[in-house]
Design a binder for these strands. Structure first.
Length: 363
DNA sequence: AAATGCGACAACCGCATTATC
DNA sequence: CGATAATGCGGTTGTCGCATT
């Protein structure tokens, strides 16, 4: 027995909205407001639309002061830094970008920013649909196999495999890329993104969907309630660390004033000092805008080639893109076992555990 | 010129949460 | 306090238009 549908699907119109429908909806809401009942609204104004569809249309397109397209660098910074910090909480991210909707940001991330950062072509949806017998696509692996619903994570039906959400994987990959870049310009070995358990400084708060949310994201949520709090940025010296971290939306030691309340504090222990480490801020900045690296002639346009990265179990050396997905697939299926308490650990006594990722990434 | 591939965007779907009775 | 309805959210899909073959 499933949930009753919110509307009669046989009589409800679907698909793109016509200008007439837009006009009707906008005129009514301009005059009367939503009335607090989206379900009843379409009947009131004679629209053959589902209430949810009306709400979405209003929120995403008809609402005043909505911006579309042409994301600024500043907005990209905020989206990227928040995504790394809190994952695909599009509504929270959208709350930091006046005039932007969660749907817009989500689309922008999926179609542009993700590729820009991860340097990975998303598998063609046509191929995904037609090659059902072929290799499992990245998103399939990330979602834990059949069943879709990308928000799922953890152990599948037979209780033997574990998979992180696609969002978590992307964030890990992004993190790895940044570390790979770091090692490419120094001699420091690549490190698996090790997250520290929550501390007072980076307290984790349980929120909806049963996920953990870093303290910084709580700030975001609080700002939704009280948008007047800390909405402005300081204007540090051009090119300074403060400027870079500020543009990226990270807190900085010098930015702990009230004006920095809108920035996000990172929960990862590898993001030094409760926020992104100095090197990572620079790397993300350069990676996004290719300024320093391109100027140094390190890469010829676009995303630099990935360095080889080492698996956390000390096994095969892999690259961070397709190889990473391959490795994750084999590892999650063969090496990790669920423990009591829902955590995932490597078989064979290896101390590396996935709980760290669950804490910080798989949100 | 037609077919195909692909990116971008709008909209839908289903689940979780919150509000109301 | 439980049941139900309404809302919010994130993932997924449909469709259009442009680029390439």
């Amino acid at each position: 027995m499933g949930r009753a549908p919110c509307c009669d699907k046989a009589t409800v119109k679907k698909g793109p909205w016509s200008p007439e429908e837009d006009a009707k909806l906008k005129a009514y809401i301009d005059e009367n407001g939503t009335g607090g009942n989206w379900i009843a609204l379409p009947q009131k104004i004679g629209l053959k639309r589902c209430g949810k569809s009306c709400r979405l249309r209003w929120l995403n397109y008809l609402r005043p002061n909505i911006k579309h397209g042409d994301f600024t660098e500043e907005e990209e910074h905020i989206i990227c830094s928040l995504y790394i910090s809190i994952g695909s909480r599009w509504s929270i991210i959208a709350a930091q970008l006046p005039g932007r909707t969660d749907n817009d940001i989500k689309n922008y991330w999926n179609t542009k920013l993700k590729k820009k950062l991860l340097g990975k072509r998303a598998p063609s949806r046509r191929l995904q649909r037609t090659n059902q017998d072929g290799p499992m696509p990245y998103s399939y692996l990330a979602a834990g196999g059949a069943g879709g619903g990308g928000s799922s994570s953890g152990v599948n039906a037979n209780g033997t495999t574990a998979a992180l959400s696609s969002s978590a994987l992307e964030r890990i990959q992004l993190h790895m890329r940044l570390q790979g870049l770091y090692s490419a310009f120094g001699n420091a070995p690549p490190q698996w993104p090790k997250l520290e358990p929550p501390t007072d400084a980076v307290a984790m708060t349980t929120v909806g969907h049963g996920h953990s949310l870093a303290a910084g994201a709580v700030v975001q949520a609080e700002q939704q309630i009280n948008p007047s709090a800390g909405a402005s940025y300081d204007t540090p010296a051009p090119g300074s660390f403060e400027e870079r971290s500020s543009k990226l939306g990270f807190g900085s030691p010098a930015g702990e004033s009230a004006g920095m309340a809108s920035t996000v504090e990172m929960s990862s222990g590898s993001m030094v000092g409760g926020s992104f480490g100095y090197g990572h801020v620079d790397e993300l900045y350069d990676f996004l805008y290719n300024k320093q690296l391109a100027a140094a002639g390190a890469f010829q346009g676009g995303v630099p080639p990935l360095p080889e990265l080492q698996c956390p179990d000390g096994g095969a050396v892999v690259g961070a893109d397709e190889k990473f997905s391959t490795w994750m697939a084999s590892t999650s299926c063969d090496h990790y076992v669920p423990t009591t308490g829902g955590q995932l650990q490597l078989q064979g006594g290896n101390s590396m555990s996935l709980q760290d990722f669950v804490l910080g990434y798989d949100q």
